Amino acid sequence: MAVRAYWRLASVCLWVGLVLGTQGAQAQQNATRNWATAPRHSSGQAPDPRRFVDQAVVQVYAAPTYGWRGNFAVHPWIIYKREGQTAYTRYDVVGWRAPQVVQRNYAIPDGLWYGSHPELLVDHRGSGVEAMIDQIETAVASYPYVDQYRSYPGPNSNTFLAHIGREVPALQLDLPPNAIGKDYRPLSRPVGMSPSGSGVQVSVWGLLGLSVGLQEGLELNVLGLNFGIDLNTPALRLPFLGRVGMRDTPAPHSDRAEAGG
């Protein structure tokens, strides 16, 4: 009995040591990988603007937000360049830059978002993109919440990209279901276009609503959590997980194929 008690005590001590050691390693990693030191280098997804100087490009990215919120929410942004330009313009909403939350060139075009690798949501290149860029710039200028920011339920960075998607349907922007804030609508306008600009939406502050559209399919929003099904490119739309199914990035057209995209 004494031997058994000894081994039980030893096992408990070993388990506690492992737990404390793991927590210590995690704490040390968190101390060395805070927001100021988190990697923000290029993900290598944006076409080299100098190599493709004669091609207009529009792309939209989304990456898990920094910290614990990254488990269930994303941060999106849009980049573009016109024909003849050798650098991208980037726009996103950054809450800690209030009262001017709409930021131009806050970070590198396709960079990691404080350590999180971005997903490419939209990729348009070549013919017709110049006109799209005109519409994007108009949409950025007309964003109604330039001095407002709330992580939940909005307006936030996802509200900003949803506004651009509604104003520029040619983007075919399908923000993922875990883009909390994309469904934010004021009480004065609960009905309107869906965030992709391809359907209709009824939403109260982004807390309760329904969207039906060509890009987003059928999506129900309950307290900012979205559940639905996408039939355009078959997939389930789930909170926390995002899309579960076929990849939704638009297929390359001839201009993209020529560019090696």
Rank of each mutant, 00 (worst) to 15 (best):
V3Y: 13
A5L: 14
W7G: 00
A10S: 06
L14R: 00
V16K: 01
G17W: 03
G21Q: 05
G24V: 04
G24H: 15
N34Y: 12
N34W: 13
T37L: 03
S42H: 10
S43K: 02
P47L: 06
F52L: 15
F52N: 10
V58I: 15
V60D: 13
A62Y: 06
A62I: 05
T65C: 04
Y66I: 09
G70P: 06
A73H: 06
H75G: 03
I79K: 11
T86E: 11
A87H: 04
Y88N: 06
Y88D: 03
Y88E: 03
R90M: 13
V94L: 12
G95F: 14
W96F: 09
W96R: 00
V101W: 03
V102Y: 05
R104G: 00
Y106W: 06
P109E: 13
G111D: 06
S116V: 03
P118Q: 02
L120K: 12
V122W: 08
V122F: 06
R125F: 03
G128V: 03
A131Y: 04
M132T: 11
I133C: 02
D134W: 12
A139M: 04
V140T: 11
P144G: 06
V146I: 10
R150Q: 14
P153E: 13
G154I: 01
N156D: 11
N156I: 04
N158F: 14
T159F: 15
G165C: 09
R166Y: 02
L173F: 13
L175F: 08
P176V: 01
P176E: 01
P177A: 08
P177Q: 05
N178L: 12
A179M: 03
A179T: 04
Y184W: 01
P186A: 00
P186R: 02
L187G: 06
S188H: 14
P190N: 05
G192T: 15
S196L: 08
S196F: 04
Q201Y: 06
V202L: 03
V202E: 00
V202N: 00
Q215N: 04
Q215S: 05
N221S: 02
V222M: 10
N226K: 12
I229K: 02
T233H: 15
T233G: 12
R243L: 09
R243E: 10
A251S: 14
A251V: 09
H253D: 15
R256N: 11
E258W: 12
G260P: 14
G261R: 05
